[in-house]
């Protein structure tokens, strides 16, 4: 598989502390990559570096084999990606307006925006909320709007930073089921940060375990989960006590 984004000798430092130290890492087209690790391991920083939203301290990032100059990421490249965070961070306005925002910023014709928003509202089962203020939604509804807002721009890579972690269990399960169907149909490449084994196991097909800013193990999700190495075993075994690994 051709890598879309490659990291070479990436380091991220803050206040003389190394947050990330990654000799080599790739995102390949079509995969649903999970990034898992304990709190403070550097998962979100890695996600932001991969999405060109945070500058690395050292090393280089390549997009489709081409080195992207540090701190000079072209807008067109940034617009190939989108992100959904744990907090839905919706704007004060209608659900329609929130979902349309990415397209509005890209200056698409109004008719196209209307059609696309209607399509994504329907896919996420929130057409009835279109005219409602996004700030008055429930957690599950807000996260559906957040994901629809990220998906509507048809990103080459969708970055997800724990978008399900704040939801109650039944809401989480229903949304994850719907989301999996949507992303598989759209064939979107996705990078999913989580510290929840159940979410990772259900959604991803490749998994990278990050501990103390370093990728300690990566490979197909079932293999990593079933055969953790010495660096990841203690972290994964704690999770396995609570979740069976049946996919």
């Amino acid at each position: 598989m051709n890598p879309l984004v490659e990291l070479n000798n990436i380091t991220v430092k803050a206040q003389n502390k190394t947050i990330l130290d990654i000799p080599e890492f790739q995102i390949c087209a079509g995969e649903f990559l999970g990034i898992m690790g304990p709190n403070g391991a550097g998962k979100s920083t890695l996600l932001k570096v991969l999405a060109f939203l945070e500058k690395q301290s050292g090393g280089e990032i390549l997009y489709r084999g081409k080195v992207i100059p540090k701190g000079n990421v072209p807008l067109e490249l940034r617009r190939k990606f989108s992100i959904a965070l744990q907090q839905s961070l919706l704007l004060d306005g209608t659900v329609f307006h929130n979902i349309a925002i990415g397209l509005t910023l890209r200056k698409l014709p109004k008719g196209d925006i209307k059609d696309k928003v209607a399509h994504w509202l329907e896919l996420f089962g929130i057409s009835h909320l279109a005219k409602k203020n996004a700030l008055y939604l429930s957690g599950g509804e807000a996260q559906r709007v957040n994901l629809a807002r990220a998906m509507i721009v048809e990103p080459e890579i969708l970055f997800l930073d724990e978008p399900f972690s704040a939801l109650d269990f039944p809401t989480k399960i229903k949304l994850m089921e719907d989301f999996k169907g949507i992303i598989e149909t759209a064939r979107t490449t996705a990078v999913f940060v989580s510290h929840d084994l159940m979410e990772i196991n259900y959604l991803t097909n490749r998994l990278a375990i990050i501990v103390n800013g370093e990728v300690k193990q990566s490979g197909p999700t079932p293999r990593v989960l079933e055969h953790p190495n010495s660096s990841t075993a203690s972290f994964l075994n704690e999770w396995k006590k609570f979740y069976p690994l049946a996919r």
């Binding site: 999405a51 807008l75 992100i83 907090q87 961070l89 925002i101 910023l105 890209r106 970055f159």
Partner: peptide, 15 residues
């Protein structure tokens, strides 16, 4: 305005 909100707006593709 939180850092996360600024990040989200940037990630939406805003100049």
């Amino acid at each position: 305005i939180s850092e996360k909100m600024l990040l989200q707006i940037k990630a939406l593709g805003a100049t």
